[in-house]
């Protein structure tokens, strides 16, 4: 579905992504793991058109999308839920959702009953008219996800969806991600919660200083303690286990 070949992205002479190639197949959850500053977000931003790549090819369903502006990428069915959520704080929850549906909304906005929202995001359904800034952290993340889904993407890029959430709330987010995959959505996920990510993903790429140093099925990576302790430092649960 998504194919990235030899991607290079740099910020003011500093190379953040250095020759990354990866692939996401339809129906998969693929994860990119790595330390802060490894270039995970830069890869997502290059795919979603927020950042134009210096080099390399990005193909989505056979079509080259590298360097297209973000709105053109969204129109092709890829949406990124950015790190830190970036909600429209002074707009209402409903307006945030409508903004997410920008691509397919008619000129005059239609505010419709949201049965689907109540099913997936019950916490939001009763707060449609509240400003987004008034939501709690967990609700805000749910809104960020719901807003991303409003454009009906086929590939969802998720950047640190559990960042800043309590373990219980993170659990909710991961459950939701699983449900979305079961409904046919393909996901490319960047996460710092390593154990959870590997439990959730089908495959993963390990990124270090802008390069992919390892990849494979999540199960295989999870059992590779040495790799995880080397590249992800002592904070990784696997490293903790191997030290024991």
């Amino acid at each position: 579905m998504l194919e990235v070949r030899g991607l290079r992205v740099s910020y003011g002479g500093l190379r953040a992504v250095d020759g990354v190639s990866l692939e996401v197949r339809a129906g998969e959850i693929v994860s990119i793991i790595g330390m802060n500053g490894a270039g995970k977000t830069s890869i997502l931003n290059a795919v979603s058109g927020i950042r134009s790549p210096d080099e390399g090819e990005i193909r989505f369903e056979g079509e080259s999308i590298g360097g297209l502006p973000a709105h053109a990428v969204v129109a092709r069915g890829i949406v990124q839920v950015p790190e830190g959520r970036l909600l429209f704080g002074t707009l209402s929850v409903e307006e945030n959702l409508l903004a997410g549906a920008h691509r397919r909304s008619p000129f005059v906005l239609r505010r419709r009953p949201r049965a689907d929202l109540r099913r997936l995001f019950p916490a939001l359904a009763d707060k449609l008219h509240r400003p987004a800034a008034s939501l709690s952290g967990g609700e805000a993340q749910m809104l960020a996800l719901a807003r991303g889904l409003e454009s009906e993407p086929r590939l969802l890029l998720l950047d640190e969806p559990s960042l800043g959430l309590s373990p219980k709330l993170s659990e909710g987010v991961f459950t939701l991600i699983r449900r979305l995959r079961d409904r046919g959505l393909t996901l490319l996920l960047v996460e710092q919660n390593l154990r959870r990510t590997l439990a959730l993903a089908d495959r993963a790429y390990v990124l270090e200083s802008g390069r992919i140093v390892s990849s494979g099925s999540a199960a295989a990576l999870e059992s590779d303690h040495r790799l995880l302790s080397d590249y992800l430092g002592t904070s990784a649960p696997a490293a903790f286990h191997s030290a024991k």
Binding site: I50, A70, H71, P82, G89, A99, S151
Partner: peptide, 13 residues
């Protein structure tokens, strides 16, 4: 409110 968030949502800023 946020040109960056708008761009992520597919709005041609």
């Amino acid at each position: 409110e946020s040109p960056r968030a708008a761009a992520y949502m597919g709005i041609d800023t």
